[in-house]
Design a protein around this nucleic acid. Structure first.
Lengths: 407, 407
DNA sequence: TGTATATGTTTCCATTATAAATTAATTTTA
DNA sequence: TAAAATTAATTTATAATGGAAACATATACA
């Protein structure tokens, strides 16, 4: 479904309609055959036939009957959420977070293991494997109901081969995640960049459900984004789309770890916020942070958040400043991609109350047109589970989407 | 073809295959039925049937027979370029450029009229109308062969309604181009932003033919871009995608006409180049420009180009500096969209020899990964006709692309 | 109780791709 | 030079769907 021109075939036709009906049911929670036909403009028999297949595959079940609208009661159809399960792995910089969910992305089991700095590739992979085993062996689902494993990995990822090309926080390169997990568990494995996974998660189950074009920005120890176009993840030519952490917004700005100057990441990432606060404090500014942190070098974004919640003016202003920088980044993104909505996630978004408004204000001030000014900027709905649920969604896409060569 | 989920139908199936075959013929120049079947993986009868229809519609014709490969000679098929004609209008800031082309985008007639500053909406529309009439009345094509008019308009455009919402260089708003021209000429009219039209033109007939994801950057009196994803123009939610002129690359940079600071446009547009050169000259730098321009205020980008061609070190350095700034903009774009190729067009690209290399160098230096470093950066192939040919392509897309509700 | 109405299914039909066989036109080769 | 092999294109028959219309079913409401 990704080529310039696509061949039409019976399989494609069927698959398109199957996908259309399945997603209509999913989006509506429960819906009758007649209503599906109306919404999709498919004819009643077409809907009936495909629904029959979905019922046989047990992906869909008939629920109790709905209320009549002056005639025969409709039979409501719902996704059979507990027919299949998926595993999602959020391999963040500090921990590996494994979840198992049903088709509604409701979590039925989870397990988290911390990551020690300086871990080797083998240990990292083993940790992931044992975490996944832990979840599978919970017995919350029978093994043959589990249809795949999705992995959200920070850093640069080669999607096709499922390789983590560069994981800056682990200082590892070329980790063969897909190959390893497929050998171990004998099921489909999909690997994706964490920000993109978050974007997919928000699109399917979070604050992006009703939107065609959106960008999900992950503000954590780094800054990344996932770009969704027409409801699908956009990867670009080399799976690099969305790497906005090193977008230059300040030619003469501070030096970044990447060697350049003025990257967005040097202004709005968690560490950047802490560093700036430490610098400002060392200049003599007043704040309760002085009491909270023994040493200014140990200052973290979390501390600033805590202080802000206690009403610390200094910390609140630091977040507002961060919001303004973030707003500049968003403006660049809005003018280039013009999404309908931007979703902010990642650790820093916990302080969303303090930085969101100033980011919105910056966008309003700098945007070129009225519609750009009104680009919706909201917080992630899935919060700390966003990446893991995004990882799960990678597998769900396989089940729910159109494949020209589907059976 | 733009919704998240699409219904499958016989019409769609047929239309997809028609489009696939038509574009296969177009891309190959000439090709046999058997070869099409091999390439598209359609069966020979399917290809034969659709080709028969295309022959009847006279969009395709049978050419002389090709050379045998050890069996019956293949009958070569080619696009019947002179069966239909299209009109393309490039409504730039300084002139209206009207062309008529055949299906190969070969220009059969052209006409250009200058635009006076302070023109009224009515005069502008009348100018366009008379320009188009001039071309139609040339007799190079019979009226019923002309299938539509495409308009590439600078500024912000509402595609659906064909309205120029804001044309900064004309100081006009809400010009109803589509409505006016459709009433006057009774044929399909498509209106598009100039940079996006250029991008489409390059995709179909220029340096973007073989690429799925590309961005075409128009560096002229302003800076704009057209984003092509999967071979199709990407518009974003409000037809604003690609407005990179006001991307912020320098928080504390010079003030832009938009009211903000450090927009890309204040560093790399034609006027920006001239302004910066004038400022540097006023500081006493040496250059033959001093003799060429009577007054430093009258300095133009063209003059710098002329001087550079004469070997003027100062002017060459100005372009190289511009290239570095442009490179920063491209890096931001590469990290967000990761296109395979970036095409530079617009007036400033005439000085491409002087700025392209430093732009490439900047990208190589700042890009995050090897593949990003190697993003191809090339000049427009269509040059000054890019926007007009892009405008023509807007109509061509209608003829060549898939429509679910096509006959 | 009957009529209108909404839901869902069946029956028949239309459209199109697909597979296999056939015809056609050449080259290769014995 | 004639037969065999090869490639191209068409014909014929078949299969896989979606689409239209009629039908059956269940319910509300007058």
């Amino acid at each position: 479904m990704n080529t310039k021109y696509m061949a039409g075939s019976f399989k494609l036709m069927k698959s398109l309609n199957r996908s259309l009906i399945l997603n209509t049911i999913r989006e509506h929670g429960q819906i009758s055959r007649a209503e599906i036909a109306k919404l999709t403009k498919l004819t009643p028999p077409t809907v009936g036939n495909i629904v029959k297949e979905l019922l046989e595959a047990e992906i869909v079940i008939e629920q109790s009957q709905g209320v009549s609208k002056g005639g025969r009661k409709p039979t409501m159809l719902v996704i059979n959420a507990r027919s299949f399960f998926m595993i999602g792995v959020d391999a963040g910089p500090a921990s590996v977070h494994v979840i198992m969910t049903d088709l509604n992305a409701d979590i039925v089991q989870m397990h988290e293991v911390p990551l020690k700095p300086g871990i080797t590739e083998a240990d990292f992979l083993n940790l992931m494997i044992s975490g996944i085993k832990e979840v599978i062996n919970s017995g919350k689902a029978s093994t043959d109901q589990i249809i795949g494993i999705g992995v959200a990995m920070h850093g640069i990822v080669d999607i096709e081969n499922g390789i983590s090309l560069f994981a800056p926080n682990l200082q590892l390169r070329d980790i063969p995640i897909k190959e390893t997990l497929e050998k171990e568990f004998a099921m489909i494995v999909k690997v994706e960049n964490d920000a993109r996974a978050m974007a997919l998660g928000e699109t399917w189950f979070g604050n992006g459900k009703d939107v065609d074009h959106l960008v999900c920005v992950n503000v954590a120890s780094g800054v990344g984004a996932g770009v969704v176009i027409n409801g699908k993840l956009f990867h670009g030519e080399h799976d690099l789309a969305g790497e906005i952490g090193h977008m230059c917004i300040d030619l003469n700005g501070p030096r970044c770890t990447c060697g350049n100057y003025g990257c967005l990441q040097t202004h709005v990432s968690g560490p950047a916020i802490a560093d700036r606060a430490a610098r400002d404090l060392s200049l003599g500014k007043e704040s309760i942070l002085r009491d909270m942190a023994g040493n200014l070098n140990e200052l973290t974004g979390e501390m600033l958040h805590e202080a802000a919640q206690k009403g610390d003016r200094f910390s609140i202003e630091q977040f507002e400043l961060t919001g303004r920088y973030l707003g500049i980044g968003l403006i660049n993104l809005i003018h280039l991609l013009n999404p309908k909505r931007i979703i902010i996630g990642g650790g820093v978004s916990l302080a969303g109350d303090y930085l969101l408004e100033s980011a919105r204000q910056t966008v309003k001030t700098r945007a070129l047109t009225e519609s750009a000014k009104n680009t919706e900027i909201v917080l992630s709905k899935l919060g700390k589970n966003a990446a893991a649920i995004g990882a799960v969604s990678l597998i769900l896409v396989e089940l729910f989407s159109t494949k020209a060569n589907q059976s």
